[in-house]
Design a protein around this nucleic acid. Structure first.
Length: 473
RNA sequence: GAGGUUGUAGCUCAGUUGGUUAGAGCAUCAGAUUGUGGUUCUGAGGGUCGCGGGUUCGACCCCCGUCAUCCUCCCCA
């Protein structure tokens, strides 16, 4: 007998976990719809050529490829080709259409871009869509990192207005307020990072600079400076970067200081303009205080301009954002992020469609909510009542009551076997069912039922109608 | 791609410098109790000690290999 197992980096979700995850999905869906976004779903697999080259060299290696079916019945020419390429296949992270032409979805953004290009004639632009589906990465799993995980994305394409950026910030605020997770939203612009590279006299080193700066939280300024040096940044450049990182104060004060430092950079001034406009739009959107419910998190002053924010993916061109949990009790990386990409659909031949989008890392949000203990308590068990099965005529009587309960919209079930009484009771207890109904000989003859409240232990014999009234939500 | 951790019952884990029949709790089943659960008590079933090789009179324990696992770095969500 081999022990059952599941593939590395995948998980089962128990009934209780699924309920909590669906609570997150439902909360996000409600907010997305409230902001006018439309649902979209794309296939689990894409053609491999759609995905390769879109996520950088590292990303390409992490794409889960699907072996072609029917290799044994290929034409002789293809078989010969495969034989010739065999050594290459064994020595490099490389594959050919003969071996694999499909791959599992790596994220939701590229499939969305593919969708927009394929359906450009059917879409009314500007187009806002949200998408909540699993994605797969052939990564080495570790804490908070899986090979199969879910993403929730909202994107708005076909408009360059910074209102879109402000709307997305607002969606983040609304979502995390509803989920009762305190967050800090970091905001930056790729244009400021480009300007910073210019300032160092090394415009082509922007990626190196941003990768190093992104680690500021983790390794501190000394670590970042070392990495910058290793990546070939001059001492003068490092000094310039330090000067910018050391700018403190409110968002407005930071932007004023940046415009002083970057006044000779067109890209820098553009970036500053983007950020200040986005923040102004956001301010107008949220001018009147949003409705707060008891226990909601006050995320009022939590949007922070942070020039060290980089974001890994290289397709971002404008404003970029990242969300981290601001509670000291929780150690977790980013739980969401996104930004503006000017030419995503250009990859598939459709030029001039600008987009901006954000993603919710729901697996991490789940872990954070678990740690903060902010899930609603009543998510535990849906079944409200269980009918004990006494067999024979009583079983028939029980089935009749069961139907009446369900017609009254009360989630109910019957123990399917006329098993020993204490076994049935133990089962109801383990399931956490609130009420147990006892339709036995006496009850049936009187056309009544005994209702036992499993929390208090209290029990009384009443009519079925009274029972329904008691149990009704 | 680099480094480390741990593999013993369905689950979580003990297991003496290497010693003869490998244990506990939980779970399951049965009974105390044929209409009363959550807290009791009694009993039962359940193990190729990850796999392969080596050292030894003797290996769950030591050595080598291998597979799996989790964690750290890289990168990311």
């Amino acid at each position: 007998m081999s022990k059952p197992s599941i593939p590395q980096g995948t998980r089962d979700f128990s009934p209780a976990e699924v309920r909590r995850r669906q609570y997150i999905f439902n909360t996000l869906r409600t907010i997305f719809e409230l902001y006018g976004a439309q649902p979209l779903e794309t296939p689990s697999m894409e053609n491999l050529v759609t995905l390769t080259g879109k996520y950088g060299e590292e990303g390409d290696r992490l794409i889960f490829k699907i072996l072609n079916n029917g290799l044994h019945e290929k034409k002789d020419a293809d078989k010969e080709k495969l034989n010739n390429e065999w050594n290459t296949l064994l020595s490099k992270p490389y594959s050919t259409p003969v071996v694999t032409e499909r791959a599992l979805r790596y994220d939701l953004t590229i499939p969305f871009a593919r969708y927009v290009v394929m359906h450009q004639n059917d879409i009314a632009f500007p187009f806002r869509r949200y998408q909540m589906q699993p994605v797969w990465r052939a990564d080495r799993p570790q804490k908070g990192r899986y090979r199969e995980f879910w993403q929730c994305d909202v994107d708005m394409v076909g408009s360059t207005s910074l209102i879109n950026e402000a709307e997305l910030l607002s969606i983040y605020q609304a979502a995390f307020q509803k989920l009762k997770v305190p967050v800090t939203i970091k905001i930056n612009s790729r244009k400021l990072l480009a300007a910073l590279a210019e300032l160092c006299g090394m415009p082509d080193k922007m990626m190196d600079i941003t990768i190093a700066m992104d680690k500021l939280d983790k390794i501190g300024w000394v670590g970042v400076a070392n990495e910058l040096r290793e990546r070939g940044i001059s001492d003068d450049g490092i000094w310039q970067i330090e000067r910018v990182i050391n700018v403190k104060g409110t968002n407005d004060e930071k932007l004023v200081a940046f415009s002083d430092i970057m006044q000779h950079s067109a890209s820098g001034m553009e970036g500053i303009n983007e950020l200040s406009k986005t923040l102004a739009y956001y301010g107008s959107l949220n001018a009147s205080a949003p409705l707060m419910e008891a226990g909601d998190v006050d995320n009022d002053h939590n949007i922070v301009v942070d020039i060290s924010l980089a974001r890994g993916l290289n397709y971002y061109t404008g404003v970029i954002v990242e969300v981290v949990c601001s509670s000291d009790a929780v150690k977790m990386g980013s739980i969401g992020g996104g930004g503006r990409y000017d030419d995503l659909t250009g990859l598939f031949g459709l030029k001039g469609v600008s987009g901006v989008g954000v993603s919710f890392g729901i697996d991490r949000i789940y872990d954070v909510m678990e740690e903060l203990d902010v899930f609603p308590k009543q998510l535990a068990e849906a079944t409200k009542a269980m009918l004990v099965n006494f067999g024979g005529e009583n079983e028939t009587y029980a089935l009749q009551i069961l139907q009446q309960l369900r017609s009254a919209n009360i989630a109910a079930e019957i123990y399917p076997d006329a098993a020993k009484f204490d076994k049935q009771m133990k089962y109801a207890n383990r399931r956490g069912i609130a009420y147990v109904l006892l339709p036995g000989d006496e009850e049936r003859q009187k056309n009544m039922v005994s209702v036992k409240n499993f929390e208090t232990g209290e029990q009384k014999m009443i009519s079925v109608d009274e029972a329904i009234a008691t149990l009704k939500p």
